[in-house]
Design a protein around this nucleic acid. Sequence first.
DNA 1: CTGAAAGCGCTTACAG
DNA 2: CTGAAAGCGCTTACAG
Lengths: 331, 331
Amino acid sequence: MANTTIYDVAGAAKVSLATVSRVMNNPEKVNPETRERVLKVIKELGYRPNAIARGLASRKTTTVGIVMADVSRSSTAQLLGGIIDIAKKYEYSIKVFCIGPDEDIEDAMRIVVAEQVDGILFLNDELNKEKMTLALNYIKESMIPVVLSNVIFEDEEIPSVAIDYETATYEITKQMLASGRKDIYLFSTVHIYSINNKKEAGYVQAMKEAGLEPKIFRTSGDVSINRLHFEGFFENNKVDGVIAVRDSIAISFMNTALDHGKKIPEELDVVGLQNTKYSILSRPHLTCVDTPVYDIGAVSMRLLTKYMKQEEVQENKVLLPYHIIKRGSTI
Amino acid sequence: MANTTIYDVAGAAKVSLATVSRVMNNPEKVNPETRERVLKVIKELGYRPNAIARGLASRKTTTVGIVMADVSRSSTAQLLGGIIDIAKKYEYSIKVFCIGPDEDIEDAMRIVVAEQVDGILFLNDELNKEKMTLALNYIKESMIPVVLSNVIFEDEEIPSVAIDYETATYEITKQMLASGRKDIYLFSTVHIYSINNKKEAGYVQAMKEAGLEPKIFRTSGDVSINRLHFEGFFENNKVDGVIAVRDSIAISFMNTALDHGKKIPEELDVVGLQNTKYSILSRPHLTCVDTPVYDIGAVSMRLLTKYMKQEEVQENKVLLPYHIIKRGSTI
DNA sequence: CTGAAAGCGCTTACAG
DNA sequence: CTGAAAGCGCTTACAG
């Protein structure tokens, strides 16, 4: 039966509502016999406390707010996967908030805070520094714990979980250099992503250390547009290696290269920096830096629970391990 | 400033809290001058009503619950995209609930209902008939409006939004038949999905009408496993056409076929039934039945708002149009 | 160990 | 048009 309230349970178990509440929240404070009786009634009636009323009375909603730019991006969906699994384990509910590019960031944060979430997981990595600062300051004022999940922001105080994108990209570039490649491009996006900035930095450093000119080619994220974008590439550029911030960019470029008669990996290395499911749907399969996105989601959620429960936290910045997965698209 | 309450606003504007409440909920019932004064204070204080308190008092949370099996699946993420965009427009919040395969479905629904959502969007299409019935009955008892979003369930009363998967698959099979293909396989999943059942039915009917034996080959959804699974396929089977319930299955099969020296599309047609981003990352690009997943999400959310607002609804079963996108993987 | 009472921050009839 | 009061369904000191 739906719509059973604590009063119904109290009535049926012949106790006060305070006792029913205790059975649910502090069972050890209740006489075992009473407790069993109440528990039995709860089960019979299929009672579950109204989460809203509980939230108002206790001032804790056991709900976390997920702030993101776009759910449909594969990485966001993977992050959410990890977040949801852990949230479930700790019995937190999940509320999702998308922020459009043109929205007032403070208004958006006001909404999140007004929903009374106990904590915030911030996944939006498409904001510039100014907007990030506004968002984070608003959250700080509201005293709600926040963890950045796969978002890079230089601020010692803000907890975050990610991988070391800069070093990862530096390393893969070094490897390509070591195997003899010289004309290596980084394919990045026109759009701002906090993470891609790091990838670019790692690439640039490796190239400079080798005394080579870093060459960053920016595309839209849109695969169907990229194709055209790539068509003219070979006429104007000498290239023997490409690292792409997204697997889909790597693959659509690789396909264009194959259509232009390039031999992969003999003449051209192609690498993706995500390791999505795409990576094994291409021919040849795509060599990738594997970004453990699910884990980043899971770990950031776990970290957030610690802050919400005011537990001791050792490290507020977590960098997860990554590794490089060699496949057929590189020599 | 965070944590501003309605009392603070009332105090600063020198009115009662009832008036502040009216300004927010029934502004036309308030004297324009008073209203402006209150609005000004609200803005100055950055006040936003506590959604939880409002939810308890009004018994409406303006929150919808999304029930799903797995966020990380591409189709789920796309559906969510459409849902979130429309929810935002109508100012509904979104709470997500994942249900694991081994979970007690009624317990899971109890949680959703206890969260006091105003409506439910049901995206989980991995449940058998029995579990679906339990879930839907529980929701019905709780009097919460529900819409099935890209889920097929035979019950006249339950509103739903999808495409006609059966006819769509029937049509594409007919087309392949018309172009001379005879040994056409349907690649489906081992796992149950309400939608794939329809796809299978459409395929079977087209084959039978042509006097041919329907051949359904079941794979796990897992692309890395499928690859092995496909290896022996060509030795044991004669095949000149493959329709796959998922694009990723179609593409990994296509790649295996190419590795085995098959010419595509000359000797073999390959078709996907989704039209995900994968479809234009393969070589050749994948011919697909385009399933407008984003739209299904958006339309189902819009339909749900009507039920939540108790508006008149014409059709409780919506079938969106689909179309076939011809690409290089078919003649 | 248990109950009566106040209170969480709002909404909503009910008077006036 | 405005305010005082009850109430939404819980939790949580406070007594006993």
